[in-house]
């Protein structure tokens, strides 16, 4: 029971993800088949839909933008600050910080992760592993959006008796970029507004918020 409670955040979000993904597949299928009926095309079953490029591109385009958002946030908050925001380091503390502050190099502890105790290259790679993995998922999802988006887009072009686009042609097409940019702008808005809202607004009990009585100008240390 304690194990579950100690990991409740990751478990809850994982379950919500699975429920939402399942729901997306069900209503997505209904939407797809409704369009198919209107266009006089054959309806498809659930398995055919979740293995279709149409479902794949919808999933990938949202994934890539979320991972871009977190990658940018993790990286930019190393150097950039927002005075008074619980999402920021205090002004003047921007940068990679010293080995002492980061408990690495000569300041590694017996309980530090193995790559940190190993030092050298391992420690260097490990010190950017969160950004590396998040950026990697962003790039892979974005590439997946391109690959699946092209197939889904070409399906429509073939129906309209137009030539299919090559991958290069699709990656420079308005369809690819409108799917990309409509997601990027919403993520950037959410992150930017969160950074500044957290200066003046509070949620009692949340580590994402300052203490309710904390002054607006106070930037809490991480």
């Amino acid at each position: 029971m304690r194990q579950i409670r100690d990991n409740s955040l990751s478990i809850a979000f994982g379950l919500l993800l699975l429920i939402t993904l399942a729901a997306q597949s069900i209503v997505g299928l209904a939407d797809y088949n409704s369009s198919a009926r209107t266009d006089g095309l054959a309806e498809i079953d659930w398995w055919r839909y979740i293995t279709s490029s149409s479902f794949a591109v919808d999933v990938a385009e949202n994934w890539q933008s979320e991972y871009l958002q977190f990658t940018l946030y993790i990286l930019l908050t190393v150097w950039l600050v927002q005075r008074g925001s619980s999402e920021s380091k205090p002004p003047g503390e921007g940068g990679l910080e010293s080995d002492r502050e980061q408990r690495m190099g000569a300041f590694a502890e017996p309980e530090s992760p193995a790559p940190v105790r190993a030092g050298g290259w391992w420690s260097g790679i490990y010190s950017a592993s969160l950004t590396t993995v998040m950026a990697g998922i962003f790039l892979l999802s974005w590439a997946a959006q391109g690959v699946a988006g092209r197939v889904a887009f070409n399906e429509g072009r073939l129906r309209d008796q137009l030539d299919p686009l090559s991958l290069g042609g699709y990656l420079t097409s308005p369809d690819f970029w409108v799917r990309t940019l409509q997601n990027w702008q919403s993520e950037l808005l959410a992150v930017g507004s969160m950074a500044i809202f957290a200066v003046f607004l509070r949620q009692r009990g949340s580590p994402e918020s300052k203490e309710v009585g904390a002054p607006h100008s106070e930037t809490p240390p991480p």
Partner: peptide, 30 residues
């Protein structure tokens, strides 16, 4: 930490498997 490690691997595996499936779907032009 056992459950935490399992969740870490689980999330990574889900992401990798779904992305791999999407690339396969794209390659098969479904």
């Amino acid at each position: 930490m056992r459950l935490a490690r399992a969740l870490f691997i689980g999330y990574l595996a889900l992401i990798v498997l779904v992305l791999a499936a999407i690339f396969v779907i794209g390659a098969l032009a479904r």
